[in-house]
Write a protein that binds this DNA or RNA. Structure first.
Lengths: 135, 135
DNA sequence: CAGCATCCCGAGTGATACTG
DNA sequence: CAGTATCACTCGGGATGCTG
């Protein structure tokens, strides 16, 4: 592998769009797996939860999450947008600001997510305990 | 990067334990994220779903999933066992056979999972449609 | 049968610097 | 402010071969 070899290169020179539009995989076979992979994303769920409360601007999200890099914030938002979960709106202000909000589809995800989050909060102590006792 | 440079070397020579006991990360900060990462595992959820129906033996699982490697099957089962979701029982037969079954904790996960799976089945068509329309 | 040991590749992710 | 371009590094995950 040479250093110049770009991973997952787009090779669209004249149409310089996003460098890497969507991070993760296809919805091959089972659609449930595809959704779960999305949900299992390190940041995706956190962003969805945040946006479930109110719209956020880019740097507002960047500050709110605190630990995420600009790159991953952009990529995750782009993925969520591409999946139709998040809507991106560019406001015509003098310093351009962008607002992100959940789509109806994104809102509909909040409820199943809450169920799983409830389970996690309810049982994570048991999981941690299980991990601490080797066999 | 030279070819001899090993990625993520273990460097524990005298204590040759498992090469990589648990694949994924810690439960830092939010326990929900940790659980979601587990759930987002490529195979973990599939195995939990399978084991939710009845106990399976190792190669039985290997055949049932079909596409998983021995290594990932072992690793995923070990992780699930380590998290207290799956129980591993070695049967004292002449060719040693091992049975895997869900623990009560694992069974309790089936319901939240079903909710999420239901959402996925219900909306994955919208997601696919959203991905096909660029902006 | 049920694993464990290695090698290897690509995806995911962070850090940093630059731009409209 | 809201990104984009690179570089570098780790880790998930597949292939293959060996063992008790």
């Amino acid at each position: 592998m040479t250093d110049t070899a770009n991973t997952g290169v787009r090779a669209r020179l004249d149409d310089h769009r996003l460098p890497d539009p969507v991070p993760a995989g296809e919805y091959e076979g089972c659609p449930v797996t595809g959704v779960l992979r999305r949900v299992g994303d390190k940041w995706a769920l956190l962003l969805v939860t945040l946006l479930g409360q109110r719209p956020y601007r880019f740097n507002e999200l960047h500050r709110a999450v605190d630990g995420i890099s600009q790159r991953m914030l952009t990529r995750t938002l782009r993925t969520l947008e591409s999946d139709g979960l998040v809507d991106r709106e560019v406001l015509p202000t003098s310093p351009p600001s962008v607002e992100y909000r959940l789509t109806p589809l994104g809102v509909s995800l909040l409820e199943p997510l809450a169920v799983l989050a409830g389970w996690a909060l309810d049982h994570h102590a048991e999981i941690v305990a299980a991990r601490r006792r080797p066999v």
